[in-house]
Simulated scan of single mutants.
Amino acid sequence: MDRILAAAKVIATARRSRAPLKALAKDVVPRDEAEGYLVQRALHDLLRSQVGSLVGYKIGCTSTVMQQYLDIPHPCGGGIFEKVVHDSGVRLPHGDYVHVGVECEIAVRLARNLTAGDAPFTAEWVAGAIEAYHPAIEIVDDRYVKWETLGAPTLVADDFFAAGCVLGPAVPRITAPDLLGVTGRAVINGEEVSRGTGADVLGHPHNALAWLANHLAAEGRGLHAGQIVLTGSLVKTIWLKAGDAVVMELDGLGKVEATFT
């Protein structure tokens, strides 16, 4: 476990100083994704004083476009923390990030726990645990010297680019549209730059949530009532310049806005 903590400390130092992370030394780099998740949990403990408590998760690589972009053929998870969950309309300093990007997401808020003992989970099962959906901007940060060379285990260890989120108003599950047909549009400075649908997220965002619940259950952990889960981007990551105004519009779920000053 000394290797795990050593890797977490290197990543935490880079996160705090906003210094681009280089490849980890051979004696501490996580050997596989399972080890990457152990480093991630140690990292969360180290960062708590800075970013607050864990309030949910993001799921990356849930769409074909993102799996091809990152060259990782399966989902990956990361943490979302109390102090980096923002309300729509927020203005965030562009300089608070190494290289900030945004993604268009459907977020879910859970009404009840999904405990490890109840696994395996299906999309139908987890759907019943959802209280509401939110239109969401996932904030991602390319905080790496060259992410393409780091490998999935190190990216997982560092929360898989996660840097927070912006949430629009909640839409109760019972009044929400069928997510399969929801089109999401990414609008930057008033111009639509990309779009996708709920079906692009592992066939349905509930499939992504079931993947996360099963992934956590395999580690003996669960999801909890009130937690937020970002189910995966409907579009390829959009990298921002200072001053960019971001709007994500999701049919039937509303819109969410943020400006990176």
Rank of each mutant, 00 (worst) to 15 (best):
A186E: 06
A157I: 07
R185T: 11
A170S: 10
T154Y: 05
P169N: 02
G151R: 05
A157R: 11
C165V: 06
A176M: 09
G181A: 10
R185Y: 09
T175N: 10
V166Y: 09
A162W: 04
I174C: 15
A176T: 07
A186N: 05
A163V: 09
A186T: 15
G164H: 00
T183P: 03
G184M: 02
C165Q: 10
T183D: 08
P153K: 12
L155R: 08
A152W: 03
P153S: 04
L180I: 06
L167T: 00
V166L: 02
C165L: 01
V166H: 06
D158G: 09
L179F: 07
V171Y: 02
G168S: 01
G164T: 00
D158V: 08
V166S: 02
C165W: 00
T175F: 13
T175E: 12
L155N: 11
L155Q: 04
L155I: 13
G184V: 04
L167S: 02
A186S: 13
L180M: 07
R185P: 09
D159R: 11
F161Y: 01
F160Q: 13
P169G: 07
V156Q: 02
G184C: 06
C165M: 08
C165Y: 00
V171A: 06
T183C: 12
P172L: 05
L155V: 07
P153F: 01
T154V: 15
